[in-house]
């Protein structure tokens, strides 16, 4: 029950000169943020947090994980999420909470009772500070995850080259996750556009090892299963040498040196002569 008393004492201390304390807190925090956040916004944020904190102490006592503190936790989560998105450093984010400690500093006149309350506040602020940092890093991880996903999407466009011919220009290293995305996108496009010819252009793939080759083969076989033909193009001389040296068998899969050759091949396969196609293009101009 001693802790309960300390919490009550703390509530009293914090609410007695509430405005003065919040003012000092805001001032301290805005100093570390060096004007990157508007004072008005900071003022609103911290005032809200302060009253939630006092309320939490009153209702929930010292147990910051408890029901009574849910408001404080929600506000802190929002605060650290915003800071993470706005690009503040973890230190700047956590300082906002740790600066609370500076408000109540014991001196020689401090009574035994107050001293215990101060220690209590210290303990609480530490816990809340860590909570803030944790939320901050979690948000950062979410952002990184989302970006990685976007990058994955960005790096695998499926383009339509001709009626019935689609191509995927692959750029960068192929791994299982990317192959999966490429495969799904390519196959879906084949269905959506009703294309019977697909070209996978690997000009932008820096190296082909057995794993990458395996992934390519899988994609080609999957396309074949759906009733489409797949050509692999953009094989550079060094890569051709590597493929042969590694003993990778492409079997009956058509491979071409350049995308242009592959397009020619695909056009022939769908029954359009490349010359007629070229004439169509010239006519369109």
């Amino acid at each position: 029950m001693a802790e309960r008393q300390e919490s009550e004492r703390l509530v009293k201390l914090l609410s007695q000169q509430g405005d003065v304390l919040v003012g000092r807190w805001i001032e301290g925090v805005s100093h570390t943020l060096r004007g990157r956040l508007s004072v008005l916004e900071l003022d609103r944020e911290l005032r809200e947090l302060y009253s939630a904190l006092v309320e939490g102490l009153r209702a929930g006592g010292p147990d910051w994980r408890g029901e009574g503190w849910s408001e404080v936790r929600a506000l802190l989560t929002e605060l650290s999420r915003n800071r993470a998105r706005q690009g503040f450093s973890p230190t700047e984010t956590a300082t906002a909470v740790f600066a609370l400690k500076e408000l109540l500093v014991p001196d020689t006149d401090t009574s035994q009772q107050d001293f215990a309350a101060y220690l209590e506040l210290n303990r609480l602020v530490d816990a809340l500070g860590l909570f803030t940092v944790e939320t901050y890093s979690k948000t950062r991880e979410e952002i990184i995850g989302a970006q990685a996903e976007q990058l994955l999407e960005l790096s695998t466009p499926v383009v339509k080259l001709w009626d019935g011919v689609v191509a995927v220009p692959l750029v960068g290293t192929l791994d299982s996750a990317r192959t999966q995305v490429v495969m799904e996108k390519l196959l879906q496009t084949l269905v959506d556009t009703g294309s019977e010819q697909a070209i996978i252009d690997i000009t932008g793939v820096p190296a082909v090892d057995t794993e990458v080759a395996q992934h390519l083969l899988k994609t080609v076989v999957a396309a074949r299963l759906m009733g489409a033909e797949c050509t692999i193009s953009g094989i550079r001389p060094q890569i051709a040498q590597t493929i042969v040296a590694l003993g990778i068998q492409f079997g009956d899969i058509v491979t071409k040196a350049t995308l242009a050759d592959a397009l020619k091949h695909a056009l022939r396969r769908i029954g359009t002569s490349p010359e007629a196609a070229a004439a169509t293009v010239r006519g369109a101009r």
């Binding site: 495969m183 799904e184 879906q188 269905v191 009703g194 019977e196 899988k218 999957a222 299963l225 009733g227």
Partner: peptide, 28 residues
């Protein structure tokens, strides 16, 4: 002729190592 295989099905079959050697396929 096997027609209208969905992408997900094609991927699954490939992952299972089934390339359906002698079967002809078409998109629709």
């Amino acid at each position: 002729v096997l027609v209208g295989m969905r992408p997900a099905v094609a991927i699954t079959l490939v992952e299972l190592g089934l390339s359906l050697g002698g079967v002809r396929t078409a998109l629709s």
